[in-house]
Nucleic acid binder design. Structure first.
Length: 430
RNA sequence: GCGGUAUUGGUGAAGUGGUUAACACAUCGGUUUGUGGAUCCGACACACGUGGGUUCGAUUCCCACAUACCGCCCCA
């Protein structure tokens, strides 16, 4: 039955693409106001870039990476997320240098790849819009990024969102908490779900957001990260909360929130929705956080960073679920009806002249009858129809009809060629 | 990676182990030999995801595969 697109991929067709363009335009516009500039990095990187940054044991690396050996025997991976490649570029191009303003603020948009089972809002090739700000440890930088994220979603007309924040603290906080959590969970080992038994040793934090009811019972009384923060980590988090309040951005602290990627520390956040288009329960549309240490891990200096990634497919599903037609119906300024094969050359000249005048124009290419051409003009939402037949050709005129009012006038062909806007005005006068 | 449901024309879909696979929309043509959104008439699936099997015979039953959707894992 012919060819099928690869599992988990999608064709974005005309009609849908206009909505994508709307989202992309909105993002560029919002980011520009915050002085973030676009960075474009490769869709694939050395496998090591992702393995190093995301953590070898993370699921993204261990089972979801789209990787392969290329003809030069290089281990390549299609990017599963945007941050690692941007950090690599930041380091490789020495953007940490003193000649660049800090924080150094960039954004990207484009496809990401993960080898997993497709579902609603989850594909193997999907798209993210993301931002990164390098070089500031200030909690104000965290909040700027969060605020920008909220603004972006707001300007995409998304409502009913929930901002959840948490902190993972610094290295010392994490180590202390890690130990406390494991020693709390260990005695419950036999009661845990099979999934969580594995998590306990691989990544105990993951047990915290298990969906298993019994796990949740156990987790309820587990130690909380907030109690294990160092004074500095506490101060950072408190300031973030305070600044969010200053900006009147509502949030919830979710101490059970964790991250799929290992490089996060301090502030992490997710913007979620419980809209059913994305499946049951709350689903994350946008997620991010701080990743001090990642730049160093990828060979750069010790330089902090904070950013977020937004799932475009998920955003689009939400937009369509919440709003009627955000993208206006396409319009056509002029449709030119040609009657008889001998009008074809003139018809072509007319539509080109109209396009010269800055208007959109279309004609028939299938030698159809006038009636059929009018029907098409109507379907295409044409504002004006120009008609050319043998008699018009003979005395060098054209019929020009306003499709709304039905008024039709006759004008010299020469005027159509040289000044269609004037013809338009003349039509409006009648 | 695990489990479940589904797969009929351009689209939405009905349907049956057996000579012509409903209906609707869209499209095209005609009704009006050169003028639009209406009416009426007509055309439009050698074909029912792919490959096997059962059967005298399968689109309808069985198996495998592919894809989509849902749940889990995980995540945007």
């Amino acid at each position: 039955m012919g060819y099928q697109k690869p599992k988990g991929t999608a064709d974005i067709l005309p009609g849908d693409s206009s909505q994508w363009q709307l989202v992309e335009k909105t993002a560029r516009d919002v980011f520009a106001r915050y002085q973030f500039n676009e960075i474009r990095t490769p869709l694939f990187e050395s496998y090591a870039v992702f393995a190093r940054s995301s953590g070898d044991t993370s699921d993204i690396v261990s089972k979801e990476m789209y990787d392969f050996m290329d003809k030069g025997d290089r281990h390549i991976a299609l990017r599963p997320e945007g941050t690692a490649g941007v950090v690599r570029a930041f380091v490789e191009n020495k953007l940490y240098g003193p000649e660049y303003q800090k924080p150094y603020k960039v954004y990207y948009m484009g496809p990401m790849f993960r080898y997993e089972r497709p579902q609603s809002g989850r594909q193997r090739q999907f798209h993210q819009i993301g931002v990164e700000a390098f070089g500031s440890e200030s909690p104000a930088a965290d909040v700027e990024v969060i605020s920008m994220a909220m603004r972006l979603l707001r300007e995409c007309h998304i409502t009913d969102l929930k901002l959840a924040i948490n902190t993972l603290g610094d290295a010392a906080s994490r180590a202390a908490y890690h130990e406390a959590l494991v020693s709390y969970l260990e005695p419950h080992f036999e009661e845990l779900s099979d999934d969580s038994k594995v998590r306990l040793h691989k990544n105990p934090l993951r047990v915290l957001d298990s969906k298993d009811a019994k796990d949740q019972e156990i987790v309820k009384d587990a130690p909380v990260i907030l109690d294990y923060l160092t004074p500095e980590a506490t101060a950072h988090f408190e300031t973030v909360k305070h600044l969010l309040e200053t900006l009147h951005i509502p949030y919830e602290v979710d101490t059970e929130m964790v991250r799929g990627l290992d490089y996060y520390n301090h502030t992490i956040f997710e913007i979620m929705t419980n809209n059913k288009v994305l499946g049951h329960g709350y689903t994350t549309v946008l997620a991010g956080g701080r990743y001090n240490g990642l730049v160093e891990q990828l060979g750069g200096p010790d330089m902090p960073g904070v950013g977020f990634g937004l799932g475009v497919e998920r955003l689009l599903l939400l937009m369509n679920a919440q709003n009627e037609a955000l993208v206006p119906e396409p319009k056509l300024d002029v449709y030119v009806v040609g009657i008889g094969a001998q009008t074809s050359a003139t018809t072509l000249q007319i539509i080109e002249s109209i396009r010269d005048a800055g208007l959109s124009a279309e004609r028939d290419y299938l030698d159809r009858k006038p009636k059929a051409q009018f029907k098409t003009a109507n379907k295409m939402n044409a504002q004006i129809v120009v008609t050319i037949g043998e008699s018009e050709l003979a005395d060098q005129t054209a019929h020009v009809k306003d499709m709304m009012s039905g008024i039709e006038i006759t004008v010299p062909l020469a005027q159509v060629y040289t000044d269609f806007k004037a013809v338009q005005q003349q039509l409006n006068m009648n």
